[in-house]
Design a protein around this nucleic acid. Structure first.
Length: 575
RNA sequence: CGGAGCGUAGCGCAGUCUGGUAGCGCAUCUGGCUGGGGGCCAGGGGGUCGCAGGUUCAAAUCCUGCCGCUCCGACCA
């Protein structure tokens, strides 16, 4: 491709409103163009990268028996009502909805379990057609609460989504493992540095799920890792040693002037924070009702809302409004304690609360706290369940201390079981003639997000450093003076020869100074740059490796073979 | 949605406090020189100052409302 007419443009400075490296470079080097918050065009360079990622994804999923389809972006809202997910997505606020001219409601596809299950129901009539894995690479729409970091978190993005159908759990296991294999191959080929962690299944639902996380400082997820234990911070479990039980002391209310935080309270009472109790009032939203729930946790720990949501089986949980707090506890948020709760209020306490004795808690009044509080005596024994945020340094279930890392979620695999096949009535008759719901799995890969994550992991002061497998071009030809007849003819000859050999070549035929071309080449980040200039009279050109910066002088005659060796070698190694 | 900030030419910004001819750098166009790390000279084009309303003889500048964007916290590929 000739630079001058390729539609590629690069910028001399960074966009003012981009902060993270991938966003800054992808915009500056002309890969993407922003139209609105979380809404981007793929410019020619990005489209090439995107297509390469798609091809890798396709090859690996096809290898595991996946079959490609395309599912609709506009989906009947009624279908989402039947699966029970319309409310969940609406509560989360992420569903784009629209209606047609007759007033029927539609959802803009945020994920496609419903439509694919509806199709499978009609297409899969016999267990002999199983297993089947349908997949697509298509647009998704999510009205993200906060689009972020350029292409990392968009409101419109492209995702590979796959859905497996099996007759039983053993079959689902095999499909799940097949996709797991494909995922590892895909991320390895994309040269991504990643880890796999146990994950929460969120609004998708189902039992097991694992996330593939690109290691990266700007990652939005916290990964908790300790030896062979790796989990998303959302569901990581840590072991906390219980204190020695004490003989119950009489309950008292004491003055604690100005103690409006756990730290101040502990200091005021000269107690460790672990002898205080936080009482939070939550509103839990269910499909058909809402409930106010009091949540108790040891003062030195934090509530994990994902765990809470899962335990309650709610659609959403959020901190209650002050009026609602007053309703169940008779006081304002901040003064609530387990003894101030109205009778009949549902109380959920973290496991660490179980062993607590003689602890301090809110008294219902400002500047006063209850001390020597004991559950079972001063308030009814609550339900004890793990709803605690694991912290770095605490031991994982395997005994090793947890370390926290940041990651970008680039892939997620789920065992759904029969959640959708049951709600939508999809399945087949088995050999005995009984109707069996499909055992489903679903699998997502953020194709556009991979590109961002790769840039986060592969850039330097000069710009992007693409791994060959997903670089927009293999070779970037830079003639220092393309107007020069002799130079032009040899550059053109090499350009055509390389293209004829099947390599992807960007030829910088612009009439600009060599310095500009070099800077732009670094920014765009093609793995191999070939410079035509001062050695050309002696039949020499230079190959420069973008990543190492290593320059080697080669003869014009040997150039094509040299490049072919390097490129083929690198591509095969990646595959 | 809560907190912070921003919106002036394609991009980056100054000008706003203290109202009075809309500027700078880059990019772009024309001509010339140059030709291995963002080169030089000369000339040119490009702006409803986010939108609406208000105050004023006069608004980019002051006031009100709205919209958009970015960053920090609650969703997810």
């Amino acid at each position: 491709m000739r630079f001058s007419t390729s539609g590629i443009r690069v910028m001399r400075n960074f966009p003012g409103d981009a902060e993270v490296a991938s966003h800054r470079w992808l915009v500056r080097a002309g890969y993407i163009f922003q139209h609105g918050s979380g809404i981007y065009s793929f410019a020619p360079l990005f489209y090439r990268v995107y297509r390469k990622i798609c091809r890798i994804v396709e090859e690996e999923i096809d290898r595991e028996g996946g079959v490609q389809v395309q599912l609709p972006l506009i989906q009947p809202a009624e279908l989402w009502e039947r699966s029970g997910r319309l409310k969940i997505y609406r509560e989360a606020g992420v569903m784009f909805e629209t209606e047609d001219r007759r007033g029927s409601n539609y959802c803009l596809c945020p994920t496609a379990e419903e439509v694919v299950t509806e199709m499978a129901m009609s297409f899969i009539q016999s267990p002999r057609q199983l297993p089947v894995i349908f997949y697509q690479q298509h647009t998704k729409f999510r009205d993200e609460l906060r689009p972020r970091f350029g292409m990392v978190r968009c409101r419109e993005f492209t995702m590979m989504d796959a859905y497996s159908f099996d007759i039983d759990e053993a079959g689902l296991d095999l499909s799940y493992r097949a996709m797991d294999r494909a995922y590892h191959k895909i991320f390895q080929r994309c040269a991504l540095d990643y880890v796999v962690v146990k994950a929460d299944s969120g609004a998708i639902g189902g039992s097991d799920s694992e996330e593939f996380m690109a290691s990266c400082e700007i990652g939005e997820d916290t990964l908790m890792i300790a030896g062979d234990y790796a989990a998303n911070g959302e569901l990581a479990f840590s072991v906390v040693e219980d204190p020695e039980p004490e003989a119950p002391e009489p309950l008292e209310v004491v003055d604690t002037p100005g103690a409006d935080t756990i730290a101040k309270l502990a200091a005021c009472l000269e107690l460790p924070e672990s002898k205080t109790l936080k009482s939070m009032i939550y509103k839990a939203v269910f499909q058909d009702r809402e409930e106010i729930v009091a949540v108790l946790i040891r003062g030195d720990k934090d509530i994990n809302e994902v765990k809470l949501l899962n335990h309650l089986g709610a659609v959403a949980v959020r901190l209650a409004e002050p009026e609602q707090v007053k309703e169940v506890s008779g006081c304002a948020p901040g003064y609530v304690g387990p003894t101030t709760l109205r009778e009949g209020t549902r109380v959920v306490a973290d496991l660490t609360v179980k062993a607590m004795t003689n602890f301090a808690a809110g008294s219902g009044e400002p500047d006063k706290h209850a001390v020597n509080v004991n559950h079972g005596r001063d308030f009814p024994t609550p339900e004890f369940v793990d709803i605690r945020m694991a912290m770095a340094g605490e031991p994982a279930p395997n005994g090793e201390p947890l370390q926290a890392f940041r990651g970008i979620e680039v892939g997620h695999i789920f065992k759904l079981g029969d959640k959708y096949s049951t709600s939508l009535g999809a399945g087949v008759n088995d050999s005995e003639g009984t109707f069996r719901h499909f055992q489903m799995g679903c699998y997502g890969i953020g194709s556009t997000r991979i590109a961002s994550a790769v840039v986060e992991q592969n850039h330097d002061d000069g710009g992007i450093v693409w791994p060959l497998a997903i670089a927009p071009f293999h070779v970037h030809l830079v003639p220092t003076k393309y107007q020069d007849e002799a130079q032009r003819s040899s550059v053109d000859a090499i350009y055509e020869a390389l293209e004829n050999r099947g390599f992807e070549v960007l030829l910088d035929d612009r009439k600009v100074s060599p310095g500009v071309k070099f800077a732009d080449a670094d920014m765009i980040g093609v793995p191999y740059r070939v410079t035509f200039g001062r050695g050309l009279a002696e039949g020499k050109v230079e190959i420069k490796e973008r990543r190492s910066g290593e320059v080697s002088e080669v003869s014009l005659d040997g150039l094509i073979d040299d490049l072919a060796t390097r490129i083929k070698g690198a591509l095969e190694e990646a595959a």
